[in-house]
Simulated scan of single mutants.
Amino acid sequence: MDLHERLSPHFTLAEMVRSQTAARRGIANSPGQLEVAALKLLCEKVLEPVRAHFGKPVVVSSGYRSPRLNTAIGGSTSSQHCQGEAADFTVPGESNLAVCQWMEVNLNYDQLIYEFGETGWIHASFDKHRMRNMELRAVRVGGRVRYLPGLVA
């Protein structure tokens, strides 16, 4: 696996597999060929258009997650991160909601989640076989995470 491999003009494999939790716990976070191909599509179809429109770096906080890493962080057992189909990110200096609203109108994706408002992040997934264009928002209710329909209430 070549971590310097470019998945698209502005994204490398290294940034799409980087994980502080994996580094801290000694967990290998190495995608296979299918996952790398999915990451390329995610970068080309979702992350690059966001970067081009806003003219700013897109900072990925979570991209690919090996099943072991996903378990370690308490991720969903059906997480698209494990298939290389999802990324959590922000665009510094831009409102998470404004980025989500632009994406909703201008891009195709599987899921777009406005996670925990402006102090959170954006989750976007791309699956070439399933394009639901589903918008959700993640909120905490009574200490539990709930996913509600739509980007805003």
Score class of each variant (00 low, 15 high):
148 L>N: 06
75 G>Y: 06
89 F>E: 01
151 L>V: 05
143 G>K: 06
74 G>T: 06
111 Q>L: 11
103 M>Q: 06
105 V>G: 03
50 V>W: 04
25 R>T: 03
111 Q>N: 11
68 R>Y: 01
30 S>F: 01
91 V>H: 05
55 G>V: 03
37 A>P: 12
3 L>W: 04
100 C>K: 09
74 G>Q: 08
48 E>S: 08
14 A>R: 15
144 R>S: 07
2 D>K: 12
127 D>P: 00
13 L>H: 01
35 E>A: 14
85 E>G: 00
109 Y>V: 06
110 D>T: 11
5 E>R: 14
63 G>W: 03
90 T>H: 10
125 S>R: 04
139 V>G: 01
72 A>S: 15
78 S>R: 06
146 R>K: 15
127 D>H: 09
80 Q>M: 11
5 E>Y: 09
106 N>D: 01
69 L>Q: 12
136 L>K: 15
41 L>S: 08
91 V>A: 05
129 H>C: 00
53 H>F: 14
45 K>P: 01
64 Y>F: 15
93 G>W: 11
57 P>H: 07
90 T>R: 15
30 S>R: 12
150 G>V: 01
27 I>A: 03
116 F>M: 09
137 R>G: 03
140 R>H: 01
135 E>P: 01
99 V>M: 06
80 Q>I: 00
136 L>G: 03
144 R>Y: 02
73 I>W: 03
150 G>R: 02
150 G>Q: 03
28 A>C: 01
115 E>I: 09
128 K>E: 08
106 N>H: 15
96 N>I: 04
9 P>N: 09
71 T>C: 04
121 W>Q: 05
35 E>N: 08
127 D>N: 13
118 E>D: 13
88 D>H: 11
36 V>A: 06
102 W>I: 08
33 Q>D: 14
62 S>M: 05
109 Y>T: 08
131 M>G: 00
83 Q>N: 06
7 L>I: 01
121 W>F: 10
128 K>H: 05
109 Y>A: 03
93 G>E: 12
29 N>W: 12
5 E>T: 14
20 Q>I: 05
148 L>E: 15
60 V>E: 05
11 F>Q: 03
149 P>H: 02
5 E>D: 02
54 F>C: 02
93 G>V: 11
102 W>E: 05
95 S>H: 14
22 A>K: 14
131 M>E: 02
122 I>C: 08
24 R>K: 15
57 P>I: 13
125 S>P: 02
72 A>I: 12
57 P>L: 12
64 Y>I: 07
124 A>G: 07
18 R>D: 08
123 H>L: 12
29 N>P: 09
123 H>R: 11
56 K>H: 09
30 S>C: 04
50 V>P: 08
56 K>N: 06
15 E>N: 04
65 R>T: 12
29 N>F: 13
23 A>D: 15
106 N>S: 13
134 M>Q: 15
4 H>E: 14
30 S>D: 10
94 E>Q: 15
133 N>Y: 07
42 L>V: 05
89 F>T: 04
70 N>K: 04
139 V>W: 01
122 I>E: 09
130 R>H: 10
11 F>L: 05
38 A>R: 09
115 E>N: 13
148 L>S: 05
73 I>R: 05
145 V>N: 04
149 P>F: 07
101 Q>G: 01
72 A>L: 09
151 L>K: 10
66 S>F: 08
43 C>L: 06
153 A>K: 05
120 G>C: 09
101 Q>T: 13
120 G>T: 10
71 T>F: 10
95 S>Y: 14
37 A>Y: 11
86 A>W: 00
60 V>G: 04
44 E>T: 06
